[in-house]
């Protein structure tokens, strides 16, 4: 749709396109085309490896880069320590990877690379992707919970001090709220990322269309819209960090439930 009649389609940015003629790559009947989404996952992976590898000089007095990497590892380590306790240490690799992968994916999707003709793709704005993160986190909770506590894991759904007659009512409610967790995890990130990007594109279309309609409209509508875009871009950078943090924080809280049963 974009390009036709000079209109901007705010949803175009979420379209997945196979690249390098890989449309027909199949494994066991499943299509695994290398898409633009895949490309940005690969970029995220490479940048993340480069970023953390740059902080591996292991110097006693850290430089700026090492400081930055240690800030992030320390941040996750402290978060897990505060929410889970000393058992949280063993989840640092997973939660760190999760947090950094989402954070880098969010931030890379916000890069203004459109100026040089490259279109960044925010893979965290697809619920197929956020869903996979949520399923992994939820699987860890289930596996750890049943591994450590066996059938007693179900006592998670009966809070302490529940009167006996209330258990048949409380148990299904708690169970449902537990089962909703992966969906809320996945949807929260996907919706937040998509909403921000759509808003930016809609405002961008205001700027373009109003300017095309005449100089007066351009000044009246285009300039305020552009000012708003600058502010919302800053907000989106904040949201990118917050959503990655929220995902990691909730994962650690859920793991805490599995480790300690309240």
């Amino acid at each position: 749709m974009a390009g036709e009649e000079g209109k901007v389609d705010p949803m175009k940015q979420f379209e997945i396109e196979p690249m390098f003629g890989s449309d027909s790559w199949d494994v066991a009947g499943m299509n695994i085309a290398f898409t633009n989404s895949t490309l940005w996952m690969a970029i995220t992976t490479i940048l993340l490896v480069v970023f953390v590898a740059g902080g591996m000089k292991r110097e006693l007095v850290p430089g700026r880069w090492q400081m930055a990497v240690e800030f992030f590892t320390g941040f996750i380590d402290d978060m897990l320590d505060a929410n889970i306790g000393k058992e949280g240490r063993k989840y640092v690799p997973y939660v760190f990877t999760l947090f950094m992968f989402i954070l880098f994916g969010n931030l890379l999707g916000l890069l203004p690379l459109g100026l040089v003709g490259v279109h960044p793709f925010t893979f965290t704005s697809h619920f197929t992707v956020t869903g996979v993160f949520a399923v992994i986190s939820f699987s860890i909770v289930l596996i750890v919970g049943f591994w450590k506590h066996g059938i007693k894991f179900f006592t998670l759904f009966v809070p302490h001090g529940t009167p006996l007659p209330m258990i048949p009512v409380i148990f299904p409610i708690e169970l449902i709220s537990f089962l909703v967790r992966p969906f809320s995890l996945a949807l929260r990130l996907f919706v937040a990322m998509m909403a921000g990007h759509v808003l930016l594109k809609v405002l961008a279309s205001f700027v373009i269309d109003s300017t095309n309609a005449g100089a007066g409209f351009g000044v009246l509508v285009g300039i305020p819209s552009f000012t708003l875009m600058i502010g919302i871009s800053a907000l989106e950078i904040l949201v990118a960090g917050i959503q990655a943090y929220v995902f990691a924080l909730l994962t650690s809280l859920y793991i805490n439930d599995a480790e300690h049963l309240h």
Binding site: I16, P18, V27, M30, N31, I32, A33, F34, T35, S37, T38, M41, A42, T44, T45, T97, F101, F123, H126, T128, V129, V132, F133, I136
Partner: peptide, 13 residues
Amino acid sequence: TYSSQIFWLLVFF
């Protein structure tokens, strides 16, 4: 796209 998304995410993640 779901199979490609899930497959490549699992690979890179």
